[in-house]
Amino acid sequence: MSVTSNEGIIIYRDVHKWYGDFHALRGITFTMQKGEVIVICGPSGSGKSTCIRTINRLEEHQRGQIIVDGVELTNDLRNIDTIRREVGMVFQQFNLFPHLRVLQNVALAPFWVLKMKKSKAEEIAIQLLERVGIPEQAQKYPAQLSGGQQQRVAIARALAMTPKIMLFDEPTSALDPEMIKEVLDVMKELARSGMTMIVVTHEMGFAREVANRIVFFDFGQLIEENTPEEFFHNPQHERTKLFLSQILDY
C-alpha cells in the first residue's frame, strides 16, 4: 500500500456529510502531502472538526471519496482498522482512560492492537513520555495530572501506534492559558520531526509558525486554502477577512 508522493497521503474528493437534514460537509476537496502540516481554522460549527473526524472514520461520510495513505475509507472493516492504526488523534477533552495509569494509557494500544510484548510496549511508552516531557508521571492516574500534562499524555498515547498521520482536534481549547504553550511546544517538535499533521486550532501564532498551509472552513465548505504568509497578509475571500479581523483584532 505504498503511495506515490505526488498523489498525496490524504485525498478528499467532493466529500459530503449530513447529520439528519443538516448538511455538515458540503463537497470538500483537497489533497495533503506526506510531511505537511495543515492548520484548519474557521468559526465554530463550520465543519472543521467533522472533517478531520472523517479521516479516521469517527464520522462516516456519505458521498465522495476519502483516501488515506492509498486506502479508501469504505465499509471495509480491514481498511478502517488499517487506517486507524496509521492515524493518531488528539482530542479537545484529552479523553484519557481515567481507570488506567498514564503508562498503561500509552502502552495499551501497542500491547492489544500491535500485539507487542508487554515489556516492549511499556518501554516504548516510557520513551514517548520522555519525548513529551513527563516521564515522572508514568505511574499516576490521569486525574492527578494538570490539563497540559494530560494533553501531552494523549499525544504520547497517539504516537505509541507510530502513526503516519496525526490529527489534532482543538488540542488547546480546553486548557488554561498557562498550559497552552507546553502542549504547543510538543506539537512543534513533532512537526519539525517530519510528522504529517492536521491541526484544528484557533492558535494563530502556532499556525503562522508551523503550518505549511492553512485551510479555512465555513458552512461546511472549504473556503480558502493558502500558505500562512498569504493567508494572514493577503486573504482572498471576504469571509476569511472577516474571520481574521474577528480573531486577531483583540
Binding site: 469517527l58 493518531g88 488523534m89 477533552q93 479523553n95 494500544a109 492489544w112 497517539a158 501506534m161
Partner: peptide, 17 residues
C-alpha cells in the same frame, strides 16, 4: 462519555476490546 469510545477507536482498538 462518548470521548472514551472515540479515543479508544482512534488508537485502533476494535469494538470488543
Amino acid at each position: 462519555p462518548r470521548g472514551q469510545y472515540e479515543a479508544a477507536s482512534a488508537v485502533g482498538l476494535n469494538k470488543a476490546l
